[in-house]
Design a protein around this nucleic acid. Structure first.
Lengths: 344, 344
DNA sequence: TTGAAAGCGCTAACAT
DNA sequence: ATGTTAGCGCTTTCAA
């Protein structure tokens, strides 16, 4: 380790600051930790010494003495591709990072290959390396919790599939109101006077996809409209294109589509385009996510904003509160917003 | 902090392991750290005790005593969108994570908004919170280093723009052989007998984009072919489509395109398709990256594999060696590979 | 090869 | 409001 040697002025310790300020180490510690029990004069003196010496507390020493790590794990139990290539994930991470920025905590990234049993990650979490964890995945269930230190606070991004975890310990999670968003999207189409409204839902193993499909069905039923125009996608562009093509083939009379993601909606648009159909005149399209895909491109997508960055912030905030010993609600569902643009 | 209380068996300390194994703490420490100066019998006894008690070393205590943090920072000085939505980044992170998985180090994610001066990140890096850093960005220069602890090892992903850093301290970086890859791609087109070869290069503020463009020009010149068929893209699908359309408009005679990224190539393919051109019969297309975009879709793309995951692994490996006190070369350029599929 | 002892830099009672 | 005193759990000379 080459850092040990050299003649650069070593990073000052709390002790040196104490000496410089003419107080005890405890007092410096109090100042550093924002204790109210410090007189203004002393506070100023200590802060001056800190600035002058360029003091930065040693994280390891602090963790050791205070018995917390000031680190939280960001666990991503999916293939990096699936997750990193997903704007949803990007936004969530951004939000988490935002919220953590004005805290003392740092983020430890735990990418766990879906292939391997991620035993390493679990032992990492159990090993007292972090004070809490945020688990972000579209698929993971709360079984991820079993075997973990029950005292390790964990917040999920998206409603986890209810699994084998003890029912008396409901998981903490924050999710978007997928149901409400889907309802709003479909209702918008109904209000537009469309009657042959199709949908391109997402995979059936994802809670969010299921909720969005259910919302569409609800509104269709309430409006007395038929709900047989369905072609499932897989949340990819190609999948959206494929589903769009299928819809056009099987239900050429459709006059609107509610697509469960913007990316798939882009694919559907491609299908519509090559069929010579005009959007929104011939077919109105509403997406979901309000991701980059919605705004970019020639035709700007009408979609449902699920406020993803904010979701990340709320996840982090929830965990931070948990760590502070506060009572927080187990479930937080963030409202979604209809964003009307050009496609419907 | 609720974790302090409770009746769960507390995590054992090194001291308890020592007692259980009937040896001193120093000996347990030696075993844990793989010191060779331990007799086989003692080693077995200690390991047995470790297993039996489920001992996991305390990271903070270790860091404090050993004066290193066992953490490395992953610095991403770009907007989360740009980077996380980019398969290149996903792969690099995967590779880094892979390599780190069989080390003691953990990854600390530092997302720094490109807007704010990221002063916070710099002070984080300067504050002795990590033993080293990996900086991954398509744009960042080595000026990122200035003001940092000169003893903090930093490895860049991608060749950094040479900036104001002292020339006697060349940055460490690992990059793909963009020039060679572009040459191979173009040469492949030439070998196919194409003579009116266009290119869709990337933005001019990105070293990788510049290198790829230069490679194309070199081979075109060497083959005595004209190099005026150029329409620049921005590494997005829409940009590729736009550039493809422009190319078709300005140079309708083209018989091949070297596109500087797979994603843009997909866009170009869309343009070709709507013009009624067949690929590869009428126009041969070679992409770059061998990302997800290359293999997915109806037509599988011929492209240049830049072995991104491996690049991430090498970045991590280089940093780990640096931390181990080894001499490593400043620059590592990984060879690229031509992957011939359907589009050329 | 093993053990004893002295910290690493900080926090947190407990006194005062 | 401030100082004193113990450690937090581990590594690391130095002796044996």
């Amino acid at each position: 380790m080459s850092r040990a040697e050299g003649t650069v002025p070593a990073r000052p310790t709390l002790e040196e600051v104490a000496a410089a300020a003419g107080v005890s180490r405890a007092t410096v510690s109090r100042v550093v930790n924002g204790s109210p029990k410090v007189s203004p004069q002393v506070l100023d003196a200590v802060n001056a010494a800190i600035d002058r010496l360029g003091y930065v507390p040693n994280r390891a020493a602090r963790s050791l003495a205070a018995r917390h790590t000031m680190a939280i794990a960001l666990v991503v139990p999916e293939d990096a591709h699936r997750v990193f290539g997903d704007p949803y994930f990007a936004d969530v991470v951004q939000g988490i990072s935002d919220r953590l920025d004005d805290s003392e905590y740092v983020l430890n990234l735990q990418l766990t290959h879906p292939s391997s049993p991620s035993e390493k990650t679990r032992s990492y979490l159990r090993g007292g390396n972090v004070d809490g964890a945020i688990v972000v995945s579209h698929h993971t269930g709360d079984h991820f919790l079993t075997g973990l230190d029950p005292d390790l606070p964990v917040v999920f991004g998206g409603r986890p599939m209810l699994g084998d975890a003890s029912p008396e310990r409901p998981p903490y999670y924050v999710d978007a109101d997928n149901l409400g968003g889907a309802r709003a999207a479909t209702q918008h189409l109904v209000d537009l006077g469309r009657t042959r409204i199709a949908t391109i839902p997402g995979p059936q193993d994802m809670p969010a996809a299921l909720d969005r499909e259910a919302g569409w069905r609800e509104v269709m039923a309430a409006a007395g409209l038929p709900d047989h125009r369905v072609a499932r996608g897989d949340f990819t562009l190609a999948g959206g294109l494929r589903a769009g093509l299928q819809l056009l083939r099987e239900h050429p009379d459709l006059d609107a589509i509610f697509v469960a993601s913007d990316l798939m909606a882009r694919g559907a648009l491609l299908a519509l385009e090559q069929a010579g159909l005009r959007v929104p005149q011939d077919v109105a399209v509403v997406g979901f996510d309000n991701s980059l895909h919605a705004a970019q491109g020639d035709l700007r997508l009408t979609t449902i904003d699920q406020h993803t960055v904010e979701m990340g912030q709320v996840m982090a905030d929830k965990l931070l509160r948990l760590l502070a010993g506060e009572e927080v609600e187990h479930q937080t569902v963030l409202a979604t917003t209809l964003v009307v643009r050009e496609s419907a």
